[in-house]
Simulated scan of single mutants.
Amino acid sequence: MTAAFAWAADGSALIIKGKEGWLFAGWGSLTHVDPAGIDKSVRMIARTNELLASKGIRLEVLMLPDKVHFYESLLPDDRQVSPEVRQRYQLILGKLQQAGIATFDDLAVLRSVQASGKNVFYRTDQHWTQDAADATALATADAIRRDVAQLAGQSGSGTALGDTTKERRYGDLAELFLTPEEKKKIGREIYTIRRQAEGQGLLDDAPAPVHVTGHSMVQPYFGFPQKLSNAIDRPVSLNWKPGNIGPWVMLLEYLESPAFRQHSPQVLVWQMYEPNFNQGPDAAGLWDNASVMPDDEWMQRVTRAINP
């Protein structure tokens, strides 16, 4: 999800330096909502959902909310979130649900985490905490159990959770966008990381009935796929990449892979991100050049991958 570009309808820079050392990514708009772009994305997801359903695969869209929803008060005084952006997550969620796409309100899940006194995001990082990842994984497991009567595989094949450890380092926003002097002033922070249980890997030898595709929020470092596997008591497979790759190419990469052809999952969890949800596969200047393609081409390749 790391980006080396600037895009925002309100002229944001790459980073927003907030109060009390809080940093925010600056490539999503704090004031502008793009309903036409949101509608276009929903239509493409709905068509993908139909194609997957024709093969007996349940699509679950995991919509992650923007960091600013939780720490708006820590933005600088000259940066305000518009009422439209405050409602953007619910707008997207409602349109997905109206289109018959399985999803759930992760903003509400993460507000509960915050209400319990825990941080949802790291101060100098664009990524979520283990507490947030764990809560979302449990909510995802609940959604899977709600929508799928019986997962394939054997009980006891889920990932065993290891002990947690602490790491002290700079967040990615600090590492990427602050000068050495600014980094020293803002300081490192403590990350809670769950170690892998001894003798187990994330990808079990048995075929995984659930696959997760997404960006760096769902990488094993933050604990989401391990917690999901533990919660559903089945293996979970995963493909993800850092950088400004985007959700469209990540899904396409998996659907065109030998892994999908050889063993398609019962459930495909497609992780997306609220601030750039309105940007489709053709969003030149937002995604890495190699990830950009016309919407029609993306849809054609998805169709061929699912129905070869």
Results as ranks from 00 to 15, higher is better:
I57Y: 05
V61S: 03
L75E: 10
L75H: 08
T31V: 13
L52C: 12
L14K: 10
G11A: 14
K55H: 14
I15Q: 02
I16G: 00
V61N: 06
L14R: 09
E50V: 13
S12T: 08
A25H: 01
R43E: 15
E60M: 09
D10C: 14
V68I: 14
D34L: 05
F24H: 04
G28V: 01
A9G: 12
L74A: 04
R58S: 14
W27G: 00
A25C: 02
P76Q: 08
R43C: 00
H32S: 14
A36P: 00
S29M: 04
E20H: 13
N49P: 11
G37F: 11
K55Q: 15
L59I: 13
P76N: 09
A9Q: 12
L62P: 03
I38D: 15
A13Q: 11
L23Y: 02
Y71L: 06
I45H: 02
K67H: 10
L51D: 09
F24W: 02
L52D: 09
N49F: 03
L59F: 08
S12Q: 14
K17D: 04
A53V: 08
G26N: 02
A46I: 08
L64I: 15
K55P: 06
R47D: 14
A9M: 11
A13M: 01
K40F: 01
V68W: 02
G56H: 06
V68F: 06
W22N: 13
S73L: 02
D34Y: 10
M44T: 04
F24E: 03
D10W: 09
I57H: 10
Y71C: 04
P76F: 05
V33Y: 04
W22R: 11
D10R: 11
K67A: 07
N49I: 06
